[in-house]
Amino acid sequence: MSELNTFLFNILLFSLFFNVGISLYGIFARPSLIKKIIALTIFSDTANVLAIAVGYRGWPSPSQPPIPPVITTTEPSIDDLTWFARQAVDPLPQALVLTAIVIGLAVTLFLVFLTLQVYRLYGTTDVRRVARLRG
């Protein structure tokens, strides 16, 4: 059980970093602006998932699976709280991700609008041809 848990977790981490690599390739190497923006959203989503994953403190340990960050008892004792702090998923990364998603939404929208405008003005979204500013 423990090995499987660790294995799955490692797969998750590995695929996240693999995803970072793919999306960076997409942003830096694909010629089309639209594809660049798609890669950018993949990139920021990967970053967000990474942040969420970080919130699962001590997940690979099988004896203490993480619990939702909600205190169920109405009047918790100190022991309850200590246990809760050890077990619960860290809510802060989720808050960070929420902020990052909102910001990412704004940036993506803006970039899509600009791409549309580029397409209107240049007739293409290929960055090799959108290169009037040089030197």
């Binding site: 960076l24 830096f28 660049k36 290169a131 500013l133 030197g135």
Partner: peptide, 18 residues
């Protein structure tokens, strides 16, 4: 500097930045 580096093509800059 002018024709190969600052050639205005986004992907070519990407190489340096990466």
């Amino acid at each position: 500097l002018r024709d190969q580096m600052h050639n205005g093509i986004l992907n070519d800059w990407g190489v340096y930045m990466l």
